[in-house]
């Protein structure tokens, strides 16, 4: 069930983006490429709107941009590791290196939402975030996350 949300294909490395806006744009395009959303533009706008309400930049170089939007076809997690540090107005004022972008379709889908909330909770665990930051391949990241989700339970 984990793989329906988190797919190795949904993890990528990116080197070009330098600003939050470029990063969000990249995430949206990547989501479209992976068939998670119908329109990259609509998803980008949704993410942007959420950022305007309150920043999703947390601690330890991680941001978790997300939105619930009708353009989302299936719930998904898109993981991007950026080469350049990106200013995300995060809580510890540190630049962001990794984004956990969540795509949530409209309507109710309890099981997937629970999984996404588990991921959110997992990000509080510093040992976990450290491992992700240190991971150098998509396979490694995938394994770290999968193991974490399995141990976190429900």
């Amino acid at each position: 069930m984990t793989t329906s949300i988190l797919d190795m294909q949904h993890i990528t490395f990116q080197t070009a983006a330098k600003t939050k806006d470029e990063a969000l744009q990249f995430i949206a395009d990547f989501a479209k490429e992976q068939g998670i959303v119908k329109s990259a533009k609509a998803y980008y706008k949704g993410l942007k709107k959420r950022e305007e309400e309150v920043t999703t930049g947390f601690k330890n170089s991680i941001a978790i941009p997300h939105c619930k939007h009708k353009t989302v076809k299936k719930p998904g997690l898109i993981l991007v590791k950026f080469k350049n540090p990106i200013d995300w107005e995060s809580m510890d004022n540190q630049p962001v290196h990794i984004t956990f972008a969540l795509a949530i379709p409209e309507g109710k889908n309890q099981e997937h939402l629970t999984l996404l909330s588990t991921i959110s909770r997992a990000l509080i665990d510093e040992a976990f975030t450290k491992k992700i930051l240190e991971a150098s391949t998509t396979e490694e990241m995938f394994t770290v996350i999968k193991n974490k989700l399995l141990t976190q339970g429900n």
């Binding site: 309150v54 999703t56 997300h66 619930k68 959110s120």
Partner: peptide, 10 residues
Amino acid sequence: CSAGIAHTYM
């Protein structure tokens, strides 16, 4: 939180 997706749980 307003979206009820991430911040709430974190």
